[in-house]
């Protein structure tokens, strides 16, 4: 006897049967709690996204947490300098699994207009595994919303995340070998 046959006849149209981890992923993908950590210019656009006109809460993502222990998404919004790189790694490590990273703006992707500066890290994927890249300087709030919806798709398909992180780990190993 299949599981759905056990449901009483009268309730059959009101019951959905899914796997537990799929249900969990579905819930997670629709209620991401981002860490409210802004580095530079993009942080202002991140704040605008959360406020009245763009209203990120339509998608259930408005619960910005100031503490990394309560957050599951790190939006790196702004230029990462070498001085700030250690704290950002630490913030990432303090976040509980499963966790995701969005690189918002060209500074976070490749260093942006400051790439040839002596103090700027050329892209946060040198430091952290990034799931979604949002180009722009700064990206408009619509772009951030689009990026978060892309992330939703990724959370629903964890095999894609795993594949990309494996590639990232490989790239990191290669880079370290080159530096050594």
């Amino acid at each position: 006897m299949e599981l759905k046959d056990r449901v009483p006849e009268s309730l059959r149209n009101n019951v959905l049967i899914v796997k537990v981890d799929e249900l969990f992923r579905w819930a997670h993908a629709n209620s991401i709690w981002p860490l409210s950590s802004g580095l530079a210019c993009c942080a202002i656009e991140m704040m605008s996204t959360a406020t009245a006109r763009f209203d990120l809460s339509r998608f259930g993502y408005e619960v910005f947490r100031p503490c990394p222990r309560q957050a599951d998404l790190l939006i790196v919004a702004g230029t990462l300098t070498y001085k700030m790189a250690d704290p950002i790694v630490r913030l990432y490590e303090e976040m509980p699994e499963p966790k995701y990273v969005i690189a918002m703006g060209s500074c976070a992707i490749v260093g942006g207009p400051f790439a040839d500066s002596y103090s700027v890290v050329e892209g946060i994927d040198e430091v952290l595994p990034v799931d979604v890249y949002i180009p722009g300087c700064p990206p408009r709030p619509e772009a951030l919303i689009d990026g978060m919806l892309k992330l939703r798709e990724k959370i629903m398909h964890p095999e894609r995340v795993a594949e990309e992180r494996a590639k990232w780990a490989e790239r990191k190993k290669e880079r370290e070998a080159k530096q050594a």
Partner: peptide
Amino acid sequence: LGYLHRGIEKLMES
């Protein structure tokens, strides 16, 4: 200070 020091003054020289 300095967590967002991007060296703008130096970049402008080039």
